[in-house]
Amino acid sequence: MTRKTGGPPDGRTDEEPWTPPGSDEPTQRSLDLVIRRDSEEDLDDDECDFIYGDIVHDDEADEPIALVVMNIPGIDAEEWEFDDGDTLADRTPKYPDDDDVVIVVPLDVLDGYLPYWDERETPLPLEQLVDDEVPFAPFPSLQLVLVEESHLRD
């Protein structure tokens, strides 16, 4: 199940932000959001259908690209707040406010950053993605479609 691309896509430099399909705003390579957790109960993510390593597509993208589920922070879309004050729920009104947030990274970017990601058994912490300047994007889980199951589902 090796999917190595040999680096970033043509024409992309490390300084360019990645714009998730269907979005008007590029995702910054720095932490441009604040995650609010009101209680430890918010950390319960047993309802999300995705796990680390699942390959997904954005259901709303005209030309979907392969995205890898990197992290499921265990919070709802209404709790994921960007630096401008908008929440993920504000930006995706089509989906329920209490939908699970799923963090994804484009497959080709991940292959260049962490070539053996598909042998890893644990998700990458958000802080590591930020520190290593890996472009990622939050999505409501219902906006994503499973394309290939994670290597951890065996």
Rank of each mutant, 00 (worst) to 15 (best):
L31G: 05
D154Q: 06
V56N: 04
P8D: 12
E149A: 07
L144C: 10
D54V: 08
I55S: 03
E78T: 02
E40I: 10
L33D: 05
D24P: 01
G85A: 07
P9G: 10
E60R: 07
V102H: 02
D118K: 11
P135F: 03
D100N: 11
E119K: 00
K94E: 12
G74M: 04
Y52P: 02
Y113D: 14
P125G: 14
R120D: 07
P138Q: 03
T122Q: 09
L31A: 09
T5V: 04
L129G: 09
P9Q: 11
L67S: 08
L129F: 15
E127R: 09
K94P: 00
D86P: 00
E60Q: 14
I103Y: 07
E119H: 10
D14W: 11
V134R: 06
T13V: 05
E40H: 01
E133W: 03
E121A: 10
D90Q: 04
D98Q: 04
G11C: 14
V56S: 07
L110G: 13
D97Y: 00
F136E: 01
I65C: 04
P123F: 14
V34K: 08
V109N: 01
D86I: 01
T2I: 11
R91M: 04
L126N: 13
R153N: 07
V130E: 15
G112D: 15
T2C: 01
L33C: 10
D32Y: 07
D45G: 02
V145G: 04
V102G: 03
N71H: 05
D42L: 00
D99A: 09
A137V: 02
E81P: 01
F82E: 02
R36Q: 15
R3D: 12
E81D: 03
T92P: 00
E127M: 13
D118E: 14
P96W: 00
A61W: 11
V68G: 10
E148S: 05
T87L: 06
G11F: 09
M70C: 08
A61Y: 12
S39N: 06
L144F: 10
D58T: 02
I75N: 02
D32G: 11
R153D: 09
D108W: 06
E40N: 11
L129P: 13
V56W: 08
L129V: 06
K94N: 10
D14T: 10
E119D: 15
R36S: 03
D32H: 08
I103Q: 08
T13C: 09
C48S: 15
R91P: 00
E16N: 07
G7K: 14
P8A: 14
R29G: 12
D90Y: 00
L33W: 12
P21D: 05
P135W: 08
K4T: 12
L43V: 03
A89W: 01
D132I: 00
F50D: 14
P106D: 14
D111R: 15
E15C: 02
P135H: 06
L144E: 14
L144V: 14
E60H: 11
N71A: 08
R36K: 12
E121S: 09
I35L: 13
P140C: 06
R36L: 06
I35S: 07
W80F: 14
S30V: 13
E16Q: 15
V56R: 12
S39T: 05
Q128H: 13
G74H: 04
V109H: 15
E78L: 01
E47I: 00
G11E: 09
D98Y: 05
Q143D: 03
V104M: 06
E149Q: 15
P123N: 13
Q143A: 13
Q28F: 06
